[in-house]
Design a binder for these strands. Structure first.
Lengths: 123, 123
DNA sequence: TTGCTATATTCGAAATCTCGAATATAATGG
DNA sequence: CCATTATATTCGAGATTTCGAATATAGCAA
C-alpha cells in the first residue's frame, strides 16, 4: 500500500509538472469556475493545447468539468491542491536566491530545443 | 514573475513525479540523514538507479548531500517538502475510492511496456 | 602503487510527454 | 438539414525521462 500511495502521489505530481497546468489550476483557484474559452484567452494559448492540458488534469481528477449547453465549465475539485501550490510558493520564497539560480539553470522559457543539460558535479 | 514562479513549481513537481523519488524523500523525512547505501538497500533498487534519482533531487535542491570520508549522506533540505507529501496523503484519503480507481487505471506496477492509454470521453 | 568500497556519470534504447495541425463531436440556431 | 460555436481527440515529430550496463571517480588502506 505504501507503494500504491507513492504511485498515486507521483501521478498527481506528474499532472502538476507543467507551467500551463499550474497556471490553469491557479486561475481556477482564484477565479472559480470557468469555461474553456476564458481559460485559453487568458493564457493566450491555442484552444487545442489547453484542451489537452485539461484532459491531463481531468484524468487525475484535479479538475471537474460541468457541461452546460454549448460550453464546459471547469473548476478545481479540491482546495487542497491550491494549498499545495501555496506551500510551493512559500518554499520558493524561503529559498529565493537559489530558486532564481535554479530557474536560470533550467534556461526555461527559451524555445524548446536544447542539449541535455550536463549534471553538475557533486564535489 | 508569475511565469517564473510557475516554471519553478513545475520543476519541483517534476522532480517529485516519480515513485522512487517520493520513496527517497519519505525515507529521509522519516529516518533523517542517510548514506546512499542505506537508501538503495532499503529501496531494493540498483545503486546506479538510486544515484540517478538522487541527482534529480539534488538538481532541484530538494536534498542536501554531505560527504564524509567514503560516503555521502543525504538529507531533506526543507521540511516543507515533507508537508507537501503529507497534504497529498490527505488528498488521497479524502478521495479514497476514486484514488484507487485512478491507480487501477494507471495500471501502474506492471512492467513498463504499454500502449498509450486512451483518454476517457468527457461525456 | 594497487585494490577495495562507495558513489556518480555516461550511453543508448524504449517509453512518455508536448506541441501544432488537422479532424471530430456536441449543442444550438436558422 | 446546414452552419456555427465550443470543445475534444488523434496524429506525428521532436524533446525528455527512465532504466540497466558499463565506466569513472574519490577516499582509504595495505
Amino acid at each position: 500500500m505504501q507503494d500504491k500511495l507513492r504511485r498515486f502521489k507521483a501521478g498527481i505530481f506528474q499532472a502538476l509538472a507543467h507551467p500551463t497546468r499550474i497556471a490553469i489550476i491557479e486561475f481556477l483557484r482564484d477565479e472559480g469556475e470557468m469555461p474553456v474559452t476564458s481559460l485559453y484567452e487568458w493564457l493566450e494559448l491555442e484552444q487545442a493545447n489547453v484542451s489537452q492540458h485539461l484532459a491531463v488534469l481531468r484524468a487525475k481528477h484535479l479538475v471537474v468539468a460541468r457541461k452546460t449547453g454549448n460550453q464546459v465549465f471547469y473548476s478545481l475539485r479540491d482546495p487542497i491542491i491550491g494549498r499545495v501550490l501555496d506551500l510551493m510558493r512559500q518554499y520558493f520564497h524561503s529559498h529565493l536566491s537559489e530558486s532564481l539560480d535554479l530557474l536560470e539553470d533550467m534556461r526555461a522559457g527559451d524555445g524548446r530545443k536544447r542539449k541535455r543539460k550536463r549534471i553538475r558535479r557533486l564535489t
